Measured scan of single mutants.
Amino acid sequence: MKVMIRKTATGHSAYVAKKDLEELIVEMENPALWGGKVTLANGWQLELPAMAADTPLPITVEARKL
């Protein structure tokens, strides 16, 4: 699914347009965010693609819901 990742004042957030859902990312498998699992505030887990740590945000990526 397409997910937009952006930086907020409190960390990172994910927006899933198909579900009209925006949630804070509360847990990251990798400190650089990319190439691992993230957990959203509502409990969803997404697998993000591997990208460079300095990838500019906001960005829309293809993520997989676990």
Rank of each mutant, 00 (worst) to 15 (best):
M1D: 03
M1I: 15
M1H: 05
K2L: 15
V3L: 07
M4R: 12
M4E: 15
M4D: 08
M4S: 12
I5P: 00
I5H: 01
K7S: 08
K7T: 06
K7I: 09
T8N: 10
T10N: 14
T10G: 12
G11L: 05
G11H: 05
G11W: 04
H12D: 01
H12L: 13
S13I: 12
S13P: 02
A14M: 13
A14R: 01
Y15I: 10
Y15D: 01
Y15H: 08
V16G: 00
V16Y: 14
V16I: 15
V16L: 14
A17W: 15
A17G: 10
K18S: 15
K18T: 14
K18W: 14
K18G: 15
D20K: 12
D20H: 13
L21F: 14
L21N: 07
L21A: 08
E23N: 07
L24Y: 09
L24A: 14
L24T: 13
I25G: 01
I25H: 01
I25P: 00
I25C: 04
V26E: 07
V26A: 04
V26P: 02
V26T: 11
V26Y: 06
E27W: 15
M28G: 01
M28V: 07
M28L: 07
E29P: 00
E29Y: 06
N30S: 11
N30H: 12
P31D: 11
P31A: 11
P31Q: 11
P31W: 07
A32I: 11
L33M: 13
L33H: 03
W34M: 01
W34L: 04
W34T: 02
G35T: 02
G35W: 01
G35D: 04
G36S: 05
G36T: 04
G36F: 03
G36L: 06
K37T: 12
K37G: 05
K37F: 10
V38N: 00
V38G: 00
T39F: 07
T39Y: 08
T39H: 06
L40C: 05
L40F: 03
L40T: 02
L40Q: 01
N42L: 01
N42T: 03
N42E: 04
G43E: 01
G43H: 04
G43F: 04
W44A: 01
W44T: 05
Q45G: 03
Q45V: 15
Q45I: 15
L46T: 00
L46E: 00
L46F: 14
L46H: 04
L46R: 00
L46M: 08
L48T: 01
L48R: 00
L48K: 00
P49Q: 04
P49K: 02
M51R: 06
M51D: 01
A52L: 08
A53S: 11
D54S: 10
D54G: 10
T55K: 03
T55V: 07
T55A: 06
T55D: 01
P56W: 06
P56S: 09
P56R: 10
L57I: 05
L57Y: 08
P58S: 03
P58L: 06
P58D: 03
I59F: 09
I59G: 01
I59Q: 10
T60S: 09
T60N: 06
T60G: 03
V61W: 01
V61D: 02
E62C: 14
E62P: 08
E62K: 09
A63K: 01
A63D: 01
A63P: 01
R64G: 05
R64N: 10
R64M: 12
K65Y: 15
K65D: 12
L66W: 11
L66N: 06
L66G: 05
